[in-house]
């Protein structure tokens, strides 16, 4: 498990990228307060997913607007699926991993 820092680093409804053990992870803070974590690099053409727009279900890559399910990582637009990571909140600390 890795602590990524304070939840206040991520504005509501946005995402931020973290480097964890050489991996790039995008963490999103949904408007219902919950967190999701996916690989940070878009499998389509390398777009920065944390710069994308989200709702309670999906993230849209800012580059070509492909969509992925934030919880399962499944592509909603015929692309490769995303790797997702378990992530949770402990007090105001973001904890990544089991």
């Amino acid at each position: 498990m890795t602590a990524l820092g304070s939840i206040h680093d991520i504005p509501l409804g946005e995402g931020r990228t973290y480097a964890v053990d050489g991996r790039m992870v995008a963490v999103f803070r949904l408007r219902d307060g919950s967190l999701r974590a996916t690989q940070a690099v878009c499998p389509h053409k390398g777009g920065p997913l944390a710069d994308g727009q989200i709702d309670l279900r999906q993230v849209l890559c800012p580059m070509h607007l492909n969509a992925w399910d934030l919880t399962t990582g499944c592509s909603l637009s015929g692309q490769q699926d995303l790797t997702t990571y378990p992530v949770r909140l402990d007090d105001d600390q973001i904890l990544l991993g089991e």
Binding site: D9, P11, G15, A19, M24, A26, A40, G46
Partner: peptide, 16 residues
């Protein structure tokens, strides 16, 4: 305007 507004979203990766 927001925390990390200008924080990079791709710090380490090899990009196209």
């Amino acid at each position: 305007a927001t925390p990390g507004q200008f924080r990079t979203s791709l710090p380490l990766t090899v990009l196209p």
